[in-house]
Design a protein around this nucleic acid. Structure first.
Length: 238
DNA sequence: AAGGATTCCAACCGCGGGAGG
DNA sequence: CCCTCCCGCGGTTGGAATCCT
């Protein structure tokens, strides 16, 4: 059972990427565009599996990726979208320009789910938890992969002062093909009333603005906008 | 200051689905 | 249809960074 590995692992680099590998990958994609991940490493002179290249590009090297802390607007938007979409990180990421699904998933697992728990909200169902349970560690992998001192962990679930994450070095060169990214393209095509053609970047921003506006209105407890927001979100799932 | 505990996030893994033969 | 290839997604892991005692 199971599929064969995406590529032979023999002789391939794993783990953190070096600057040289980043450069090779970036230069290759700038010259040839995204896609054909399986054959890309060989052509680019990388001893990496295609999947690894794709991941590195999507989550780190791609131009216009936002670095640094999630803003409070983004934070609220993620929570709202998660109530509507669940763990569909790529869909959620599609509504947050410059953020990657991996980043949002990590942010959710390390910050938001814990925060919701401390607020007495089930991070999965977004329902209020009736009794007053001890904050439960919901990340099961952490339970298995590291020994835990529970009481200490519970203590740590109390929100602490935010940590500042310095932006990591990333390319700043503009890249015309950025918004040819399939996911973004697909997302745009699902939105009704978005004029065809025009500047992709502007469309993306318009899209975000529209979403943000809906979000802010729901925060104002306006029931009509709440309905509007949810139906808008549901339209994205088609 | 030291070292154990915990957090965070980049990267890996396996699976599902679409496309094409 | 069935099979294979490839891509993308969500869950999980490993280890550096940070915190705590």
């Amino acid at each position: 059972m199971g599929r064969s590995p995406c590529c032979s692992k023999v002789g391939l680099h794993r783990g953190f990427w070096t600057h040289r590998e980043d450069t090779l990958l970036t230069k290759y994609i700038e010259a040839h565009g995204e896609g054909h991940w399986r054959s890309l490493p060989k052509k680019a002179g990388l001893f990496r599996c295609g999947k690894s290249c794709r991941l590195r590009w999507m989550n780190y090297l791609r131009p216009n990726i936002k670095r640094g802390n999630i803003t409070s607007d983004e934070d609220h938007l993620i929570i709202r979208l998660h109530t509507l979409l669940g763990n569909r990180w790529s869909l959620i990421a599609g509504r947050l320009p410059g953020r990657t699904d991996n980043e949002i998933k990590n942010y959710w697992n390390t910050n938001l789910s814990k925060r919701l728990m401390t607020d007495g909200t089930d991070p999965n169902t977004h329902q209020k938890i009736s009794q007053s349970p001890a904050p439960k560690e919901n990340n099961k992998n952490k339970q298995t992969h590291k020994a835990k001192n529970t009481s200490s962990t519970e203590k740590r679930l109390v929100p602490k002062k935010p940590k500042v994450h310095f932006p990591k070095p990333t390319r700043v060169t503009s890249f015309v093909n950025l918004l040819r990214n399939d996911r973004l393209t697909r997302a745009r095509t699902t939105v009704p009333n978005v004029a065809a053609g025009g500047d992709n970047h502007t469309l993306e921003n318009t899209y975000y603005e529209e979403y943000l506006q809906a979000l802010l209105n729901t925060v104002d407890q306006d029931q009509n906008y709440q309905v509007e927001f949810e139906s808008f979100a549901e339209s994205l799932l088609i």
